[in-house]
Computed example of a mutant assay.
Amino acid sequence: MVERYRAEIKALNGDKLGSHPSGEADFTVDGDTLTVEITMDQTSPNTQHWMHFHGFPDGRDAQPATAAQDINHDGYVDLPETEPVSGTTMVPFNDQPEKMAIPTDTYPVSDDHGHFHYKKEVPLADIKAKFKETFNDDDLQLEKRVIYVHGIPNDVDLPETVKGTVMDYDPHTTLPIATGKIEKLN
Results as ranks from 00 to 15, higher is better:
Ala65Ile: 04
Tyr118Pro: 13
Ile127His: 05
Thr66Ile: 07
Leu124Gln: 07
Thr106Cys: 03
Val85Leu: 13
Pro64Ile: 10
Thr39Lys: 14
Phe56Gly: 02
Asp137Thr: 09
Val122Gln: 05
Asp139Ser: 04
Thr88Ile: 15
His73Gly: 03
Val77Met: 07
Ala25Leu: 11
Thr33Ser: 03
Glu24His: 10
Glu143Arg: 04
Gly59Gln: 06
Asp26Phe: 13
Met100Trp: 07
Phe27Thr: 04
Ser19Arg: 15
Ala67Cys: 01
Arg60Cys: 00
Glu98Gly: 08
Trp50Glu: 12
Pro45Gly: 12
Asp139Asn: 14
Val77Arg: 07
Ala101Leu: 14
His54Gly: 08
Pro103Ser: 02
Gln48Gly: 07
Glu133Leu: 13
Arg60Pro: 00
Asp95Lys: 09
Leu140Arg: 03
His115Gln: 13
Ala11Glu: 00
Thr47Lys: 12
Tyr107Asn: 06
Ser19Thr: 14
Ile102Cys: 03
Lys132Pro: 07
Gly14Lys: 00
Gln42Trp: 09
Asp58Gly: 03
Ser86Ala: 15
Asp30Thr: 10
His73Glu: 15
Asn136Phe: 12
Gly87Asp: 08
His73Asn: 15
His115Met: 13
Phe116Pro: 09
Gly75Tyr: 00
His73Val: 12
Leu140Gln: 03
Leu34Pro: 01
Pro103Cys: 05
Phe27Ile: 09
Asp58Tyr: 05
Ala68Gln: 15
Ser110Gly: 04
Ala62Thr: 08
Glu37Trp: 03
His52Gln: 13
Phe56Met: 05
Pro45Met: 14
Leu34His: 01
Gly55Ala: 05
Glu24Asn: 13
Arg60Ile: 00
Asn13Leu: 05
Ala67Arg: 12
Asp15Gly: 01
Met51Leu: 03
Asn94Pro: 02
Ile102Asp: 11
His20Gly: 11
Pro21Asp: 12
Asp74Trp: 03
Asp111Tyr: 06
Ala11Asn: 04
Asp137Pro: 11
Lys132Asn: 10
Asp126Gly: 00
Ala25Thr: 02
Ala25Arg: 11
Asp58Ser: 04
Lys144Asn: 12
Gly23Ile: 02
Thr104Pro: 01
Asn13Ser: 03
Asp58Phe: 05
Ser22Arg: 15
Asp32His: 07
Gln63Asn: 11
Val29Thr: 06
Val91Gly: 01
His54Ser: 11
Tyr76Met: 06
Ala101Glu: 14
Ala62Asp: 11
Asp105Thr: 01
Ala125Gln: 11
Leu140Lys: 04
His115Ile: 11
Gln69Val: 06
Thr82Tyr: 08
Gly55Leu: 01
Pro21Ser: 07
Lys144Gly: 00
Gln69Cys: 04
Ile147Glu: 05
Leu142His: 06
Leu124Met: 09
Ser19Cys: 14
Lys120Arg: 13
Gly87Ser: 03
Ser19Met: 15
Thr35Asn: 01
Thr88Lys: 15
Ala129Asn: 10
Leu124Cys: 08
Glu24Phe: 11
Pro21Gln: 02
Asp30Phe: 04
Gly18Thr: 11
Met51Asn: 12
Asn46His: 14
